[in-house]
Amino acid sequence: MTNKDTWFNRYVNSLPTRGWFKLLSRYVVVPYWIWRDPKPKLPGGPRESPQPSENTQRMMNLIMPLKDPSPMGRAMAAMAIAQNVDEIFSGLDNVGTVHTARFLILGDNLCMISVYDGDFSNYIRDFIETIGSVFDAVISQIKGAEHMIPTCDHVEEFIEWVHDHDLFQAPDFPTDLFALQDAAKGLPTDGPAHEIMTLPRDLILQLHANPNLSLGGGYRSYPGYSAAQVRDKFGVGW
């Protein structure tokens, strides 16, 4: 296919907005490809990187389904946060590697969005070690998490659970998606190169497996600096 501005190319490019094609895609094309080339759900959170600068200011988008999504249940979740928020925040202060953290009720979920430095498992383990007993009140509002209370006695399981409920972070370089999909399928890393034109299809199939995702790693105004380095510079103690 050429990039010339011919009537045929214009027509092909307009397909995604045409009703008949949308219907065809939804009921035939996409289901066929999901059957033919299923993509495993990709793991959540930032990926490990050899770059020290990639190991600071990492994003966590933890999506926890509410046990009771009714207005009453939401109020219970809001209360679990409100009653414990001071302890949670002072606990995060003690963890020492956290830039920001906040809680949202979104859809039928309670979300914890945070920016932290270093290894994900260390962050969650230190968090539970610091305020696990308080956070258990929050976890008790979450569907499918009751068996991990008290969290300090189920720390390995809890870390895996959080990892599983942390949003997949789509790569900043779109074509990196191929390698992630191959790795998830256990395919060799040195296989034949993927055709760039299959990227949209692979992205659509991935969005079937991971309907919610973080679009890239996000913006950082001072990349490469840890929370402690920033605090140190401002003289507020670390």
Partner: peptide, 25 residues
């Protein structure tokens, strides 16, 4: 995870434990 890897990834490499060495290995 809590001991060997925790030391390797955040302390020996990256150096998160002290701001003056963060970003060095």
């Amino acid at each position: 995870g809590a001991q060997f890897e925790a030391v390797m990834c955040d302390w020996l490499n990256v150096g998160l434990q002290t701001p003056s060495i963060t970003g060095t290995n």
